[in-house]
Amino acid sequence: MELDELYRESILDHARHPRNFGALEACNRSAAAKNVSCGDAIQLFLRLSPAGRIEAVRFSGSGCAISTASASLLTLAVQGKTAEEAEALFAKIQRLLTGTSAPQDELPGDLAALAGVRRFPQRVGCAMLSWHALEDALRAGEKNSA
């Protein structure tokens, strides 16, 4: 079935058992994102070190399998990265899912499971939800420190 491409085994696994789920008590950055078309809402919490490295990341909220799995994968992917590296990853995943990057520009590691979303344009918003929250959380930080 075509849908197996979208709901790959690891996507279903992350949707059923999201990693790093629940609020992060000691966070210094957070942002919420809402998909107005379906009501999915995700809140992302970060703890950035003074040097700008993501020391901890968690998320909460409710959403479909794609948005939940994407948020779960996000937490694993950006853990330990610098804010700049995380922003670069956001840009890369956005390019890949919205079809403006070359097909060989594959996503690293477990994030590759999200590539199936590319063929379902109506679900790209679901996959990008937590990533937009990540970007907002990082940018909110820039504003605070400015």
Binding site: E2, C38, D40, I66, R123
Partner: peptide
């Protein structure tokens, strides 16, 4: 345990 969007994506298929 099945979000409405996932459900209708299946029904669409």
């Amino acid at each position: 345990k099945v979000h409405a969007h996932d459900l209708v994506a299946f029904l669409d298929q």
